[in-house]
Computed example of a mutant assay.
Amino acid sequence: MDRRTVLRATVAGGAAAFSGSLWAGAAVAAPAQPGPSPYGSLRTADGNGIQLPTGFTSRVIARSRQTVSGTSYTWHDAPDGGACFVAGAGWIYVSNSEITPGGGASAVRFNADGSIASAYRILSNTNQNCAGGATPWGTWLSCEEVSRGYVYETYPQGGTAAVRRAVMGRFKHEAAACDPDRRVIYLTEDESNGCFYRFRPNSWGNLAAGTLEVLVAGSATSGPVTWARVSDPDGSPTLTRSQVSGAKRFNGGEGCWYDDGTCWFTTKGDNRVWAYDAVNQRIDLAYDDSLVSGTAPLTGVDNITGAGSGDLYVAEDGGNMEINVITPAGVVAPFLRITGQSSSEICGPAFSPDGTRFYFSSQRGTSGSSSGGITYEVRGPFR
């Protein structure tokens, strides 16, 4: 996967795409280029096989088919999308399981000092749970990456059964991101001719009823967009992506992250990061692997998350097993690299609620199989 990659800030008329966010000060006159990481260069691999900048350390949180330390719970196969939630004085990290059948999602609860308090299952008997997204009301949307798959609303705190939210559409779901300002949820679709959707709940905080819409635009990579209602979210007999004429096609929708008026989402088929400006209703190509000559630091774009600094963190599916940081100043650089796991992919990047700890998984670990997944934590001087 030696493809060229670069972060691209919007240019000329597209500059408004980042207005009102931490990206508003980005240089918009030209595509940004790879440059020095705000954290410095990567050191040699630590005992866990992870290369990190100076001042950062890693630890293993869980391994597939092994009990989570200090608990009796066996961690799931193929850990994928994840997110963190406040839990009293501590927090919870939730992780999907991308296997069929079985799938589902698990959670690890941490004490205030970072020690593991417990681990448990929050979703069972589903299929190929890939990514998803956290809601402002503290639930985790776990998405099935299968044809006419469902979104399941799960409860990280435990003790409450997950609920299937069929009204959010049946398609090959990937990720979700909540926009509390417009009270909608954005959804990506992992198809080579997939779409970008938004779900409008009738009542914010209640996903039992609402309207599914699809983004409509021309073939250009930037410009104004509109939204059109998907008349049959069930996708049968006509698939959701085939119901609206003019729906914009995206090549393999993956990660999705909303912050301060912008929803960032990735497409793995063409190694791009897109920026949907929800304020001005336009899209722009924020990242494209064909815009840099020579070797780019980031290939195989996949899961994405953000930090309070405005930095984006993009995980690689393949590539050289890195998570790259993309700064508002237009710099793309490696933040970490996993060594000795070339047959895996990095999934589920998420920060703890206070922003001091960073979680992610290697889906297949050193074995290259779903039973070899490893979930990690990184600590250090995050900005």
Score class of each variant (00 low, 15 high):
Ala119Gly: 04
Gly223Glu: 12
Arg121Lys: 13
Asp311Met: 10
Trp204His: 05
Ser58Trp: 01
Arg198Gln: 13
Ala87Cys: 07
Pro201Phe: 08
Ile374Phe: 02
Pro34Gln: 13
Arg65Val: 11
Pro297His: 09
Leu42Ile: 06
Glu322Leu: 06
Arg63Phe: 02
Arg282Val: 06
Gly252Asn: 05
Tyr150Leu: 14
Asn206Gln: 05
Ile61Val: 15
Ala87Arg: 10
Asp77His: 11
Pro328Trp: 07
Arg164Met: 10
Thr299Cys: 08
Ser242Val: 00
Phe18Lys: 09
Gly252Thr: 11
Val279Leu: 09
Thr100Gln: 13
Ala333Thr: 14
Glu98Met: 13
Pro156Cys: 06
Arg383Lys: 13
Phe171Lys: 09
Gly114Phe: 00
Asp181Tyr: 10
Val60Cys: 02
Pro36Thr: 14
Thr305Gln: 03
Asn193Thr: 14
Gln363Ile: 12
Thr267Ser: 10
Gly159His: 12
Phe85Thr: 00
Thr339Leu: 09
Gly40Asp: 10
Thr126His: 07
Ala131Cys: 11
Gly82Thr: 02
Pro237Cys: 04
Ile346Asp: 04
Asn280Ser: 12
Gly235His: 10
Arg165Cys: 11
Asn129Trp: 00
Ile346Gln: 04
Ala209Phe: 03
Phe171Gln: 12
Trp140Cys: 06
Glu377Met: 01
Pro381Asp: 03
Pro224Tyr: 08
Tyr150Phe: 15
Thr375Glu: 09
Asn48Ile: 02
Gln51Cys: 12
Gly372Val: 01
Pro224Phe: 07
Ala166Arg: 15
Ala307Pro: 10
Thr57Lys: 00
Gln33Trp: 07
Thr238His: 06
Arg337Asn: 11
Thr299Met: 08
Ala105Met: 11
Val325Gln: 03
Ile50Met: 01
Val60Gly: 00
Gly218Asn: 04
Cys130Trp: 04
Leu207Tyr: 13
Ser106Asp: 15
Tyr376Pro: 01
Leu239Ile: 03
Leu291His: 00
Glu191Arg: 15
Lys268Val: 11
Val163Ala: 11
Ser293Leu: 13
Phe199Gly: 07
Arg109Phe: 01
Gly348Arg: 09
Gln51Asn: 08
Val244Arg: 11
Ile283Gln: 14
Ser231Met: 11
Ser236Leu: 09
Ala29Cys: 03
Arg282Trp: 00
Pro136Trp: 02
Ser219Cys: 04
Thr327Pro: 11
Trp75Cys: 07
Pro156Ala: 05
Asp288Leu: 03
Arg272Gly: 00
Trp23Ala: 13
Met168Asp: 12
Ser97Phe: 09
Ser72Ile: 08
Ser19Thr: 15
Ala117Gly: 06
Ile326Phe: 11
Thr139Ala: 02
Ala134Leu: 00
Gly55Lys: 08
Val11Glu: 15
Tyr276Asp: 04
Val108Ser: 03
Glu98Ala: 08
Asn271Tyr: 04
Gly25Thr: 15
Glu254Ser: 07
Glu345Thr: 04
Ala286Arg: 13
Gly47Ala: 15
Gly132Gln: 08
Ser242Lys: 12
Gly90Ser: 02
Leu42Arg: 06
Val94Ile: 02
Pro34Gly: 11
Arg364Cys: 07
Leu187Ala: 06
Arg337Phe: 05
Ile346Gly: 03
Ser37Asp: 09
Ser342Trp: 05
Val378Met: 00
Gly380Cys: 02
Tyr120Pro: 02
Glu345Ala: 10
Met1Thr: 13
Leu212Thr: 05
Ala247Met: 01
Cys256Tyr: 00
